[in-house]
């Protein structure tokens, strides 16, 4: 950890080791061939396949199911970001002020499931949520309900599934920032007569917001690309994700149309990032949450 700033700082000190810069070369080469080049091809194709022009984009705009799935993707990702923000903040706060042993346990409980395959976890949720699943069987055995609750294939199930998958990416940046906040400040506020709620809202919360913003950004952008969760838990009659919609056309080798949809999603994502960068000073936030705030 301590070494990182020193290495990156060498450039700023007008360092006499330009050869270090060459170390970036293999990675840059890799990124060019395996990221930039295919991405460029995709964008190019969206304007040229099958004919040159904006046909693919016009087609998307005129297809209600496509536009609807774009809106569904955006709305669901936003909702999940909100849920993750609330759940993640409370959870991170609990870790921050728990005893070291409990904190380690709580952290493990977030990180460990993230290592289990997403597909496996989604299938597990299917078993839990379906009409004949664990939750319904349990409630029926207790005679709390007489007819099964409709849990699976609802937007609720998708939101739950996505929250399960994404909440670690909210907890970790928030926790990282919270760790850097000196609790003396809160105590000082209390000493000056602030009630705990006021001390939290006026002193602690503002200082922890960078972590919340960083986590929200990651969760929202990651949510836009979800496929497995809405496919297996979602009501794919109404709310299909853009990735599901695109899959139909990719299977038929309509590369141009599929590329156009990919480009649209990329544009939406970049726009989100641009707005966030402007409003939230995103670079600083990311540095604070991942560089370890001090």
């Amino acid at each position: 950890m301590a070494l990182t700033p020193r290495i990156s700082g060498s450039r700023r000190r007008g360092g006499s080791q330009p050869r270090w810069g060459l170390l970036v070369f293999p990675a840059a080469l890799f990124m060019f061939f395996f990221f930039a080049w295919p991405l460029g091809q995709m964008i190019f194709r969206s304007f040229t396949d099958p004919a040159t022009g904006l046909d693919n984009y016009a087609r998307f705009a005129q297809t209600p199911s496509g536009v609807r799935s774009l809106l569904e993707t955006l709305a669901m990702s936003a909702a999940v970001t909100l849920i993750c923000a609330v759940v993640g903040y409370v959870y991170a706060y609990a870790i921050r002020f728990a005893s070291p042993r409990v904190a380690a346990l709580l952290l493990l409980a977030v990180i460990f499931p993230a290592g289990v395959n997403l597909l496996v976890r989604t299938f597990a949720l299917q078993v839990v949520l379906r009409d004949t699943g664990i939750v319904n069987q349990f409630l029926m055995r207790l005679h709390l309900i007489s007819e099964h609750l409709t849990l699976i294939r609802t937007e609720f199930a998708v939101a739950l599934g996505m929250t399960c998958m994404l909440v670690p990416y909210m907890v970790l940046p928030i926790y990282s920032v919270m760790r850097g906040i000196n609790p003396d400040y809160v105590q000082a506020a209390a000493g000056l007569g602030a009630r705990p709620v006021i001390a939290f809202a006026r002193v602690f919360l503002p200082m922890s917001l960078p972590g919340l913003y960083a986590g929200s950004l990651i969760v929202f952008v990651a949510g836009l690309g979800f496929y497995v969760v809405p496919q297996l838990l979602g009501d794919n009659a109404g709310g299909r994700f853009l990735s599901q919609y695109t899959a139909d056309y990719m299977a038929q080798a309509e590369w141009g149309y599929g590329s156009a949809i990919g480009t649209i999603l990329l544009l939406v994502t970049l726009t989100t990032l641009a707005i966030a960068a402007r409003v939230l000073k995103v670079g600083e936030i990311l540095r604070m949450s991942f560089g370890g705030a001090r």
């Binding site: 209600p64 199911s65 299909r240």
Partner: peptide
Amino acid sequence: HLDSITTSFNNWRSG
């Protein structure tokens, strides 16, 4: 007609 069949079906399904 696969293209129009798929599109009609999808539009109906998401409607």
